[in-house]
């Protein structure tokens, strides 16, 4: 399966039951508990991560908290 992650084309093993939540784990995304996921241009509610399936061609962005200004 081919998806786009943070602008980069990414090949993943075929898996029809891969959720956003399991993708976060599979890709070892940092700040996993706090990262915001944008799926095909829409911000995804956090409580939908476990129920939303990743499908062929999805464009996914991981958006991270950055609190510094110091």
């Amino acid at each position: 399966m081919t998806i786009t992650v943070n602008g980069a084309t990414t090949e993943l093993p075929e898996n029809n039951s891969r959720t956003i939540d399991s993708l976060l784990e599979e890709l070892k995304v940092s700040q996993r508990l706090y990262v915001t996921v944008e799926l095909n241009g829409e911000i995804l509610d956090r409580d939908a991560y476990e129920s939303t399936l990743v499908t062929e061609g999805d464009a996914i962005e991981f958006l991270y908290f950055m609190g510094g200004g110091c």
Partner: peptide, 15 residues
């Protein structure tokens, strides 16, 4: 719109 709620205190490192 991006981050509906702040992260828990000390969850994200500071500078």
């Amino acid at each position: 719109c991006i981050f509906p709620t702040p992260p828990p205190r000390d969850a994200i490192p500071t500078c």
